[in-house]
């Protein structure tokens, strides 16, 4: 059972910010799929929960000037089903549709996932690989500056992620091996191609959370084929380890997912 807390459901960004500032130890809540289990296990005890679910500024999916912008409060289910997403970046729609189960996808949000930066979450890999811009209540942050290690981002206390603007690539692919228990990513790779430039982001595998695999990017920028990655490996020592996958297996899986994502562009691939 959770510790006692107060719950607020503001309807504007400014009201949410105000609530947060005025509270002793507040936390924003979006889908709550990480925060609530943590609170139920008594590992988090915010004095106030400020819901971001009723704020219009955080909603909507739009396409403009080579950019697909998704409101932070959009659920995984709505991203997966959005024509704007499936039409422009089908791998991103596939990614959203592969998160958790039906219930999770109808509660969990893109903003919550990105702001939480769980090392096994899916979205951070798309944010990095699609060179996204993270819009907040205060500013715009480049993807390369946003993720700062496991569960850590560039967001300041009280700052709210409002929308994620993805650069629309020529093509992109996402390949994932799921943890057999939690079905989070044991390792996954998002590979996006922008002209001659290729971006590869790996999630699930590293101890430090999502990262860009620059060696793979260099090779793929010259020769966009799975074969171009032959012999390229990740450093096992940088990988995460638990009962589900050793460092060596994670390094193997990350490389395999990258090859699969190159081979199978335009879609989600579950290994």
């Amino acid at each position: 059972m959770m510790y006692a807390f107060s719950y607020h459901a503001p309807i504007s960004l400014s009201e949410a910010r105000k609530r947060f500032e005025e509270s002793e130890d507040a936390a924003y809540i979006s889908g709550g799929h990480t925060l609530l289990p943590t609170m139920k296990n008594r590992l988090a005890a915010p004095s106030d929960l400020v819901s971001l679910g009723q704020i219009e500024e955080l909603q909507g999916i739009a396409v403009a000037e080579g950019c697909l912008t998704i409101g932070a409060a959009e659920t995984h289910a709505s991203v997966a089903a959005s024509d704007a997403v499936t039409g422009r970046i089908p791998a991103l729609a596939g990614l959203a549709g592969s998160i958790g189960d039906v219930q999770v996808r109808h509660r969990g949000t893109i903003g919550g996932s990105v702001a939480n930066n769980d090392p096994a979450a899916d979205y951070p890999s798309a944010v990095l690989a699609l060179d996204a811009r993270l819009h907040t209540s205060e500013r715009v942050i480049e993807a390369s500056d946003f993720f700062q290690g496991v569960y850590t981002t560039a967001l300041e206390p009280g700052e709210i992620l409002t929308k994620v603007g993805f650069r629309i690539p020529d093509t992109a692919g996402y390949a994932k091996m799921r943890n057999p228990a939690s079905r989070y990513a044991l390792a996954a790779a998002f590979v996006a191609r922008f002209g001659d430039s290729v971006r590869v982001a790996i999630t699930g595998a590293s101890e430090d959370g999502v990262f860009r695999w620059t060696e793979a990017e260099e090779r793929l920028s010259k020769d966009f084929s799975a074969g171009a990655l032959a012999g390229l490996t990740l450093n096992e020592a940088d990988m995460n380890e638990d009962i589900h996958a050793s460092r060596g297996y994670r390094a193997h899986l990350a490389a395999l997912c990258t090859r699969k994502a190159v081979e199978l562009q335009g879609r989600l691939t579950l290994l």
């Binding site: 091996m177 057999p180 044991l186 589900h244 050793s246 060596g248 297996y249």
Partner: peptide
Amino acid sequence: ITPERIWQALA
């Protein structure tokens, strides 16, 4: 017999 165990066995 998880995928990890199979990977270890093959290795």
